[in-house]
Amino acid sequence: MSNKGLIKTVFYLFTMVILSFSAKAQKPKMYYGDTSALGVPFSKDPTVIKFKGKYLMYFSMRMIDDKTNGMNGWQIGIAESSDLYNWKKIGEIKPEADYEKKGLCAPGALVRDGKVHLFYQTYGNFEKDAICHAWSSDGIQFTRDSSNPIFHPTGEWTNGRAIDAEVHFFKNQYFLHFATRDKSGKIQKQGVATAPANTDFKRSDWKQAVDSSILKPELPWEGECVEGASVITKNKKLYMFYAGAYNNAPQQIGIAESSDGLTWKRLSDKPFLPNGKPGSWNSSESGHPGIFQDSNGKTYLFYQGNNDNGKTWYLSNIPIGWSEKGPYIRK
């Protein structure tokens, strides 16, 4: 080999080493993707709770048909952690009821009176997809609500679809924030329903709070979609972390605030958490937020990302701080 060829080879190997170290450095502290269904990391739509001393994360994962060994809709995965960064899968919630036969996904969870309450959507029925409810004493085995599905919206502003449930207690009532679409099925937007403080979350307790969208895509980066709302109370206000634009458009995370849960105002016309730069692990998107406040008061924003336009999906989190102006990303 000539000196020129040797120099080129050394330069190439050096470049590969640098890129390798760079790729590893780009990976966040939490970098979770379940491989049990597809053989590649594929986890979406995280929601996290603390229950009986452990952290539990519920997420959407693909479902495999045992007969054909092919993809057949969605189910919900359950992972456990002791530190919020390292996760181990401990269970799955598979379709059981007839209304779930095409799949279930996009969970939202809360703890009340020693039980985990899970709110999730049916899948594969498009405008007939609706919000369901189940509860558990151990966080793994769930009992379905006999009144399922518990909610879908009505009115000329919606096609009747309800997905991405988020249930949050505020001012002595429960708010169910959900995503729906317009009559054409093109524009995805947010709606809200309410239930009294003493509810057991059954269908008859939920009432559509307004006959219109409470947050719809308006900014250029939001495209045709606002979805995946995740809500927290701070400074006597509600803060909604939401996903703007459809998956890999890229989807990015924005923030809105409200004093009543019905009227919302964006904190910025720019994403709070944008997709990553080219070559990073989340260059295709940073999407579907899940805000979590630990028992010590610390707050973490969970979200999904990938860099291959959805061939794989990882879950991660970032620490969130708070000021009078609202949330910020802690370093």
Rank of each mutant, 00 (worst) to 15 (best):
N3V: 14
I18H: 00
S20G: 13
S20W: 05
S22L: 11
P28D: 03
Y32T: 01
P41W: 05
F42M: 06
S43H: 04
V48L: 06
K50Q: 07
F51R: 05
G53K: 00
K54Y: 13
Y55G: 00
F59V: 09
S60V: 00
M61F: 01
G73P: 07
I76Y: 11
E80D: 07
W87F: 03
W87L: 01
I90Q: 04
G91A: 10
Y99W: 15
G103M: 03
G108C: 08
R112K: 15
R112Q: 15
R112P: 12
L118D: 10
T122M: 10
G124P: 06
N125D: 15
F126A: 14
E127C: 09
K128Q: 04
I131P: 02
C132N: 10
C132F: 12
W135K: 12
W135A: 14
S137P: 01
S137V: 12
I140H: 04
T143E: 05
T143D: 04
H152N: 14
H152T: 15
P153K: 04
P153Q: 05
G160F: 10
R161N: 15
I163R: 09
L176P: 11
H177T: 04
D182W: 09
K183D: 09
I187V: 15
Q190S: 11
P196G: 07
D205H: 15
D211C: 13
S212C: 13
L215T: 12
E218D: 07
E218W: 00
V226P: 12
V226S: 08
E227Q: 14
G228F: 13
K237C: 08
L238N: 11
F241T: 00
F241K: 01
A243D: 15
G244P: 01
A245W: 07
A245L: 05
Y246Q: 03
Y246T: 08
N247M: 02
N248A: 14
Q252L: 09
A256W: 13
W264C: 11
W264M: 08
W264E: 07
P274E: 09
G279H: 08
S284F: 02
S284P: 11
G290S: 03
F292C: 12
N296W: 06
Y300W: 14
Y300N: 10
Y303V: 02
Y303F: 09
G305P: 07
N306W: 07
N307C: 12
D308G: 02
I318A: 08
G321P: 10
K325A: 10
I329D: 07
